[in-house]
Write a protein that binds this DNA or RNA. Structure first.
Lengths: 211, 211
DNA sequence: AAGATAACTGTACCGAAGTACAGGTGGAAC
DNA sequence: GTTCCACCTGTACTTCGGTACAGTTATCTT
């Protein structure tokens, strides 16, 4: 990788020891004195003051320095602020006082065109979407699975995710015909008439009505 | 970095030349033959068949292989599909036929805990993420109705309860034909393919994918 | 050995769902 | 008046979902 130039922007313009440790050649700059320089930094680290909103600050910085990749550093990181930062097109978000090795990792990721999303935000995102996409890890509490064979349960879960018979067939490596067999069995065992009702039941919106 | 084990999942199980070039030790696997192996791969590359939805496919793969980091490869990349992929907790999304160096870059970023996200998509992803959880719950659960006419909303709600077209027609005192008209409009406006997806969205189990 | 159960497959049929044509009405806005 | 939009309807077509026949194979029980 080419030599990266790191520039830390903050209210005071200081360069914390950890930053220096991570990037010995890093330079610091005050927000107020930020101006075009040659050669331009490859990565901007923006230490967010407590009382400032992310979007306006980044907008101002971009006006002054041009559209460079920015990583937001927060003294008190929290997920909502992280979201704000990414909304403002930041490339990363992490703790102001993160370890040097960590900072280097972030720089690496961002330098290669990626986004650095903090562990906890990542987890939240994954969990939130997991709730949406893979409905229940806890079908245990649900009675719907009780009388279904393992295969039928797989099919029922796939239906609950919105899969078509063809997709289920491919997913399970069986023919569409066989999928229909299982679907039919699930319909009868749950006492409903179509796959939509299966989806509602598996997703916990309806209760099954045993025939 | 520890030796990474790359596994390419696709319909055919083949390993394209570029993939092999990027990761000489990569192995290929069919979706249908995917199964736990030791040692587990560190990164899964999932080549998405054109006619398959992302979420069910990844869900299926995770059921088979456990919750491993996945990068989605698309033969015809587009933003909506990418958004779907990240909603399904993929760690990256890129072109199936990307150059070897590019793939290694993606792997690097993902391996260090980052997400590989195309520039144009960042904004949309953040918005989608924000819609999913952070904002007041009411807003997100009602967003589906935003661009629907009153009549279309009635139909959408009826579908969400599992009603058939005929039942909806009776309930609203109109013909089945007209119900189909409204259903078609809802499908298009929510960007989904069938009524089951409508039900999932209205019930807050999935987010709409703006066309 | 006989029976039960789960899983799988094939051909065929029917109705529901969804789409593509092609319209007609009433109200609100310009 | 004209234009736009929501709402409504009809015929015809394709695809998908679900069911009804009729089987095979493997495993486990009695």
């Amino acid at each position: 990788m080419k030599q990266a130039r790191h520039c830390f922007l903050s209210e005071s313009g200081e360069v914390l020891a950890r930053w220096q440790e991570a990037f010995p050649k890093a330079v610091g700059m005050r927000f107020t004195e930020a101006a075009q320089s040659r050669p331009a930094p490859t990565l901007l680290w923006v230490r967010l003051p407590q009382d400032r909103a992310v979007a306006p600050l980044l907008a101002e910085i971009r006006r002054r320095l041009g559209n460079l990749p920015c990583v937001v550093l927060s003294d008190l990181p929290d997920d909502n602020q992280a979201l704000e930062s990414f909304s403002a097109a930041a490339k990363g978000y992490c703790n102001t006082h993160a370890a040097a090795a960590f900072l280097r990792q972030v720089a690496e990721v961002v330098g290669q065109g990626g986004l650095w999303i903090g562990e906890s935000l990542m987890t939240r995102l994954v969990e939130a979407t997991a709730r949406i996409e893979s409905p229940p890890p806890m079908e245990s509490s649900d009675s719907w699975a009780a009388h279904l064979t393992p295969r039928e349960q797989e099919v029922a879960r796939a239906i609950a995710e919105g899969a078509s018979n063809k997709e289920i067939a491919r997913g399970l490596g069986i023919t569409e015909r066989t999928v229909k067999l299982h679907v039919g069995a699930v319909l009868e065992k749950l006492g409903v008439r179509d796959r939509l009702q299966i989806a509602l039941i598996v997703n916990g919106i309806r209760q099954s009505q045993p025939a």
